[in-house]
């Protein structure tokens, strides 16, 4: 298992490099540039050239990329073009906010979605199944920003139970986490139900029954352990998406996380910040993928034991 993990980590290095390089090229090719953003459109060509040189933007893109990569390897993510703040500092404080938001959304959607999926599978084709899956389908189909706006409308503006925006305590976490988590509850519940039903139809479930095991034990010992394997892998694959999905929700709720930072950086072409954020997302994606595979390996001896 350890060797497998090491191997996977080594293989993931070119993936992370590739993602950041592509991001570099895309930023380079899209219209707009940070110099205009900083100096305004009426700046003299001399002033523009001077600033370009200072930021290294006059160099060929691959040279810029090489320089950036060298700095990253030395632990230097650069300085924000806009705020002059070191990028690592700007991201550092925001990363914890984003993780707090996404992990709350993730854990609560898992804790709700999984039992609902199991329940629906156990009550297959009953009213309880149809109703819970109908709700899950609705959650799954609506985008998170729609939930964000609806939650604000109901709980902040109408009922005035919870604050509209900001991050000044646990109360502020509830609505953005809900907005982010509700669509996930839908997809997790649906997937868990489908996987559970599939395993219930497997012949080894019939074997367990023929052995005299109670329905309850069959479900919790024989069925769920198998149904959990694909669901776990999917959850870990989805986590990085959840983090990038936070861009919109953080903006709506003025939640001071990475997503909000990303939004502003993209608007103003703050290259160093965008680069650093993409690097972090790429690394997180690779890590969570690996974590998903490790968990699958722990649950499934066919992967673990050769």
């Amino acid at each position: 298992m350890l060797r497998y993990i090491t191997k996977r980590l080594i293989f993931s290095i070119p993936i992370v490099l590739g993602v950041t390089l592509i991001a570099f090229l895309i930023l380079y090719l899209t219209p707009g540039d940070p110099v205009t953003n900083l100096l305004g459109s009426r700046a003299t060509p001399e002033a523009r050239a001077e600033l370009s040189e200072k930021l290294g933007l006059d160099q060929p893109v691959l040279v810029q990329y090489g320089r950036w990569l060298g700095n990253v390897l030395h632990g230097d993510l650069g300085t924000s073009i806009l705020t002059k703040q070191p990028v690592s500092e700007a991201i550092g404080s925001r990363l914890s906010y984003t993780l707090k938001l996404t992990l709350t959304a993730f854990l609560s959607s898992v804790l709700i979605g999984i039992p609902v999926g199991i329940f629906a599978a156990a009550k297959q084709n009953t009213a309880a199944d149809h109703i819970s899956m109908g709700i899950a389908m609705f959650f799954y189909s609506m985008p998170d920003f729609w939930f964000g706006l609806m939650l604000i409308l109901v709980f902040s503006l109408t009922l005035q139970w919870l604050p509209v925006s900001g991050a000044y305590g646990p109360k502020y976490l509830i609505l953005p986490a809900l907005a982010l988590g509700l669509p996930k509850i839908g997809s997790i519940a649906r997937l868990m139900r489908a996987e559970t039903l599939e395993v219930m139809r497997e012949e080894y479930s019939l074997t367990a029954r023929a052995k005299g095991i109670s329905e309850w034990l069959i479900m919790f010992k024989h069925v769920l352990r198998n149904a959990a394997i694909p669901v776990m892998v999917m959850l870990f694959l989805a986590l990085p998406w959840l983090i990038s999905g936070a861009v919109v929700i953080e903006t709506i709720f003025a939640w001071p996380g990475m997503g909000q930072l990303m939004y502003q950086a993209i608007l103003r072409k703050d290259f160093p910040v965008i680069q650093a954020l993409l690097l972090i997302i790429a690394i997180l994606t690779v890590l969570f993928n690996l974590l998903g595979d490790v968990v699958a390996g722990l649950l499934d001896p066919r992967i673990r034991v050769k």
Partner: peptide, 24 residues
Amino acid sequence: QNIRGGRIAMIFQDPMVSLNPVYT
């Protein structure tokens, strides 16, 4: 439940799918 596996047992056609893959 007491009778199944205790007094009457049953085995199936395909042993590739009739044992639970995640338990020894």
